[in-house]
Simulated assay, not measured.
Amino acid sequence: MLWPFNHFRKPRLTPAGTIEAIYGMIVTQAREPIFYRDLGVPDTVNGRFDLLLLHLWLLLRRLRTAQDGVEPSQVLFDRFCEDMDDNLREMGVGDQTVPKRMRAFGEAFYGRVQAYDQAIDSGAEALAQAICKNILNGAGIDRARRLAVYAQAAEAALGLAGEQALLLGSFKFPAPNGKDVTP
């Protein structure tokens, strides 16, 4: 289980620079304009958050199968939490409200991880339904299907990446294709 307070336990073996690079790759991929322009992801704080969660989930899902994936998964999750905390503070959220918002982020993360894990194991349509609900606010099932195809392609690409490539941040997410993707 990923726990936001594990950084109090022991020193990290995963280099911070590598995690920064990996987290940067996730953020960069989640900011690809095609997701917003062609695939209907709302270009809002919530839409960007949900797309970030989708990519984080994809990578964490793959790291679960890696022999040395536990620690990088935790460090990556911690980096995500730090980023969310920093973003809240930059938006002017007060110190007393940040913990409540962070709790909401955690609930959103774990809820989506559970929904996506169940959905991807059930097939493309189930994943499309989960994406439609969580990312597209319940509207646009055709676009959700295209996002589901992308998520399945990303899962496959990450599955082909070797463990070292994952741990060193030398893997690539597939290019999203908003027009030619069909389920």
Rank of each mutant, 00 (worst) to 15 (best):
V75E: 05
A104P: 02
F35P: 08
R12W: 03
R103W: 13
F49V: 03
L127D: 13
D78S: 10
K10T: 10
N87M: 14
T97P: 00
F105C: 01
D86P: 02
D85S: 07
T65C: 05
A124P: 08
Q96A: 14
V93K: 10
S122Q: 14
R112Q: 09
Q96C: 09
A126E: 14
L63G: 09
F109E: 01
L59A: 06
M91V: 06
Q29R: 10
D117N: 09
D95V: 03
A115R: 09
V45K: 11
E32G: 00
R103S: 15
R48S: 08
Y36L: 08
D78R: 08
V45F: 12
L56T: 00
V75M: 01
D83T: 03
M102R: 05
V98C: 12
T18W: 00
F105Q: 02
T18K: 04
D78T: 07
T44K: 02
L58T: 13
G106K: 09
Y36E: 11
T44M: 07
K10A: 08
D38Y: 07
E82V: 06
A115C: 07
Q118T: 11
T28Y: 12
A119W: 10
E125W: 15
G40M: 08
T14L: 09
G24I: 04
M25K: 14
R12M: 07
R37E: 12
L63Q: 02
A66V: 15
G92Q: 09
L39F: 00
Q96V: 14
D50Y: 06
Q74K: 00
V98Q: 01
V113C: 13
M91Q: 14
D117T: 04
A66K: 02
F109K: 01
R64I: 04
E107G: 15
T65P: 04
R64H: 11
R89F: 13
L76T: 06
N46L: 11
K10M: 03
F49S: 05
Y23M: 04
E90R: 14
Q118G: 10
T14M: 13
T44I: 03
C81G: 12
M102E: 04
A30V: 06
R12K: 11
